[in-house]
Design a protein around this nucleic acid. Structure first.
Length: 883
RNA sequence: GGGAGCUUAGCUCAGCUGGUUCAGAGCAUCUGCCUUACAAGCAGAGGGUCACUGGUUCGAACCCAGUAGCUCCCACCA
């Protein structure tokens, strides 16, 4: 290994990742151990790695690696999602570039291109995950359109259909004119948009009067079926039973009455357009109105519109405003803010459209899925999402599962010439059913439904289907790994995906799919904006890895991500991560440079037993943080243990000193065998607890000869985390005081400008019972003392300070500045007296004494005693100064 | 319109059942240091009316009520 002052991650990352792969350390097969399973939220095949994936997968990898090191059989199943709409759009775009139009292709031809595209680009994101160090069992990589997974989709469709949970019907759906498909309610993102409210005048038949309506969508007037007014609206009583003409096309429509209309919105008149608005549709049903659909699938106007045929709806909107203006039928235009739905996948404005679709009933399935969360069988982390979840599950609507696309699982419905249909897994099976209706039918008479199912109708099966739990419901994998343990995903897809997986788990396995759901925050930039490609505010994760190393980026992601909160990502966290692994690297260099001398007896027992206690104490804290999924805090506790306790204190305590002979070169003293071995053992434990966060550097160091000869398979990734050990509270407390003493002396050096090289004498009047002499080695070394003595009386003329109730005196060559010293002491006395006053107030308060817990009273009494003692010491010092 | 959550140091956040190390951490800042592991570093220091106003209590960052600001989710007002 090359020894450099700065650790270079690049060289190690490729090397160790290949090494792990070659030795199958990520691989998992069922055995006697306890399983720990995570299924990856499958990224879209169209995706490239973004910061959200970085966060998500760093968390999953930390959990997986830690479980592996706790002796569990850790299995992280990777894979990708076929993402019908997004992928089909990409493929269509690719074909367009090649001069091919989807319309000119048959379904199989198109699918051949789509698979070609998938094979070429679909694995990119998984390759990127490897750069992060993701320890997935790649042999298990699944794709939501793999044969078995697709088959599961078809089987479950049939199962639900037979149960009466899937039906077909004409409904108002969310139409994505760009994807040319229906989408589910959850796939519609509502955003507030500045719009215009057009006031349009409809001539009233048989009069010269006009009736004015307000609308944001004037291009839909050609689809109007009526004008609706509130029957209680006295302004319009005279119009009851009248008819009006639609401007520009002069089609006559009735004026109808319904209390649905708000009298105080707009003009109090509502245009009713049943084909293009959900409410209008319902109103139309109620009043038996005609449904006139004027939009093509791509959002352009069709011939039913009579005018502006072929124009896109937004172009038509502008033009129609001009036409109305010219016709004198546009009364006014107002600025108006309203909610507009956008397609989650294509970002196109959603048009409500009446169409024939397949739906999945949700209510029955939602009930048990809600119970799992409410009764704690599934824990949402953070807990606050439970409320959101409940709200959604209690108000869930039927799920539109058909998509007018080719890329996906084709719905297993087969239509007979008469329009009836049968549901069957294959055409042959369908024919058998069809022949019960009409014996003369042949295969040629059947046509399969063109539509595919919603992508989420396949991914909701993911935790089961990745283990082949449908085709082979009793196989070893599904029995061993299911239910999985933790699911780590973004809160944005709580309903899309998490809720539905829970439903599917119950419906198809009678069990929860996972026990804990860790909902990560959304990655935002420093200004709090969501990171997105369109804003251009997202750094390229791979660039970050190049710059800071995968370990640095992993640490950076976690440091900026307290559980469940959105995180304001800032590159400086990655810098902190990089600095951290560099610190570890340098600690390693220090230890590696030591020479051992077997003849020296160990002077470091106190330091070693202190660090051991400190380490064990930290282990408890880290475990506690992990158990609450506070990864960021677990990391911080580890960070402080390593940087502060191990590097800044422990290594400094035991580090052999340098000798500067009068003649000759300086040299470093050797270290004794016992300290050396123990320190290496500590270091090895530190590598273990760091490994889940920083897998590359820890693996790199693990194999250095400093830690002895290792066999090929003895590596950090599968090392077992140190068992919990005892810690000695007394020594931990004592060392805290010793550290304070050292800090105080350094402080004196700082303020008096005494060089760290100049050694000092320290006298202690120990009142607290701490045996400072037993810490002599540490004190002498870290405070650079030439003498440590216990005294019974205060030392006059020396610089002094208090730690607990112990008095410390450092004789200096200079004279004490009496005035300054007096001021310092008086200030401290004043503070202590104030403190004492508040303590006394409690202790003399009868109700406090009567109500407070005994241990609280006891602690207050101790505070009082300490403060009393300190004040007495200070007063003595002041009295002496006065002399 | 309904629901949830947040507001603590310059920044990002901890702070559990009210009292024990209740005012904390990391980063940033300031002051000294190139002290033979590390300047990607070392030593030391400063920094907060716990959003605001009331209430409950012997005692409130913590419980209650109200106010202000921010965020998210859900919802068909044209």
């Amino acid at each position: 290994m090359s020894i450099a002052k700065t650790y270079l991650p690049k060289e190690a990352e490729e090397k160790w990742y290949s090494y792990w792969l070659e030795n199958n350390f990520f691989k998992s097969v069922p055995d006697d151990r306890e399983p720990y399973t995570i299924v990856i939220p499958p990224p879209n095949v169209t995706g490239v790695l973004h910061m959200g994936h970085m966060l998500n997968n760093t968390i999953q990898d930390v959990l997986i690696r830690r479980a592996r090191m706790k002796g569990k059989n850790a299995c992280w199943v990777p894979g990708t999602d076929h993402a019908s709409i997004a992928t089909e759009a990409k493929v269509v775009a690719m074909l367009k570039e090649r001069g091919i139009s989807k319309k000119d292709l048959t379904r199989p031809e198109f699918l051949a291109y789509a698979w070609e595209w998938k094979e070429k680009y679909g694995g990119i994101i998984l390759e990127q995950l490897k750069k992060l160090g993701a320890s997935c069992d790649w042999d298990r990589t699944k794709f939501t359109m793999d044969d078995n997974l697709s088959e599961a989709v078809i089987d479950t469709f049939i199962h639900l259909y037979k149960k009466g949970l899937i039906y077909r019907g004409i409904r108002m759906v969310n139409w994505d004119p760009q994807g040319k498909t229906a989408v589910s309610d959850e796939e519609v993102i509502r955003k507030e948009v500045n719009q215009k409210l057009f006031y349009i005048k409809y001539p009233v038949a048989g009069t010269s009067e006009f009736l004015t309506i307000a609308t944001t969508r004037p291009e839909t007037i050609m689809a109007d079926a009526a004008i609706c007014i509130n029957p209680n609206d006295e302004r319009y009583t005279h119009l009851h039973g009248k008819k009006v003409f639609i401007p520009l096309i002069n089609r006559e429509i009735p004026v109808i009455l319904d209390e649905y209309v708000e009298m105080d919105f707009g003009t109090g008149c509502l245009k009713v357009t049943p084909a293009h608005d959900l409410n209008d549709y319902e109103l139309g049903q109620k009043h038996n109105l005609q449904v006139i659909d004027i939009l093509n699938d791509d959002g352009t106007l069709n011939d039913k519109a009579e005018i502006l045929i072929g124009e896109d709806r937004f172009a038509a909107r502008k033009k129609i405003a001009v036409l109305l203006e010219e016709a004198g039928q546009l009364e006014k235009v107002e600025e108006y803010k309203s909610q507009v739905g956008f397609s989650e996948r294509t970002n196109a404005v959603i048009e409500p459209k009446l169409s024939m679709q397949w739906f999945c009933k949700m209510e029955e399935m939602a009930k048990p899925a809600l119970d799992y969360v409410l009764n704690g069988e599934i824990k949402l982390i953070p807990e606050k999402f439970t409320n959101t979840y409940r709200h959604w599950m209690e108000n869930v609507k039927d799920w539109c599962i058909s998509r007018q696309l080719w890329w996906g699982q084709q719905i297993p419905a087969y239509y007979l010439p008469n329009g009836q249909y049968v549901i069957a897994k294959t055409a042959e099976e369908a024919l058998v059913q069809a022949q019960q209706i009409d014996v003369k039918l042949t295969l040629a008479d059947l046509t399969q439904e063109e539509d595919v199912v919603d992508t989420w109708f396949s991914s909701w099966l993911w935790p089961i289907s990745v283990f082949d739990g449908f085709k082979d419901p009793d196989n070893a994998d599904i029995n061993y790994y299911y239910p999985t343990n933790d699911l780590v995903t973004a809160p944005e897809i709580l309903f899309f995906w998490v809720a539905r997986m829970i439903m599917a788990g119950h419906e198809f396995k009678g069990q929860v799919p996972f026990k804990n759901v860790y909902l990560t925050g959304i990655v935002r930039d420093k200004l709090g904006r969501k990171m997105s490609k369109s804003l251009g505010n997202s750094p390229d994760p791979l660039d970050l890895i190049t710059q800071y190393g995968a370990d640095g980026v992993r640490v950076g992601m976690l440091l900026s991500s307290p559980a469940g909160n959105d995180l304001m990502f800032d590159e400086s966290y990655c810098l902190q991560g990089r600095n951290f692994y560099n610190k570890v690297w340098n600690a390693f260099l220090l230890v590696k440079g030591w020479k051992v001398d077997d003849t020296i007896t160990c002077p470091n027992h106190i330091a070693m037993s202190w660090f051991e206690s400190r380490f064990n104490q930290a282990m408890v804290e880290i475990e506690d943080n992990f158990s609450q999924y506070r990864l960021s805090e677990a990391l911080m506790a580890t960070y402080k243990l390593v940087w502060d306790d191990f590097c800044a204190w422990y290594l400094e305590m035991i580090k052999p000193s340098f000798v500067h002979p009068a003649d000759g070169d300086p040299y470093q003293n050797p270290i004794d065998r016992e300290t050396y071995s123990k320190t290496i053992a500590f270091f090895e434990d530190i590598l273990k607890i760091l490994h889940p966060f920083m897998p590359f550097i820890t693996e790199e160091l693990w194999h250095d000869e400093l830690f002895g000869q290792r066999s090929e398979l003895d590596c950090c990734i599968v090392a077992q985390l140190p068992a919990n050990g005892e810690f000695n509270a007394q020594i931990l407390a004592d060392v805290e005081s010793v550290k304070q003493v050292i800090t105080q002396i350094r402080n004196i050096r700082n303020t008096k400008q005494i060089s760290p090289k100049e050694s000092l004498a320290l006298s202690v009047k120990a009142n607290s019972g701490i045996d400072y002499l037993s810490y002599k080695a540490i004190l002498t070394k870290l405070a650079n003392l030439n003498e440590l003595s216990l005294v019974n009386d205060k030392l006059s003329g020396a610089s002094n300070f208090l730690v607990l109730t112990d008095e410390f005196y450092v004789p200096l060559n200079e004279n004490i500045d009496v005035a300054a010293e007096k001021e310092r002491l008086e200030k401290e006395r004043e503070y202590l007296q104030g403190f004492l006053k508040s303590v006394n107030a409690k202790l003399t308060n009868e109700r406090f004494m009567a109500n407070a817990k005994p241990e609280v009273i006891e602690s207050e009494q101790k505070k009082k005693a300490d403060a009393d003692a300190k004040i007495k010491i200070i007063e003595d010092a002041l009295a002496e100064l006065a002399n």
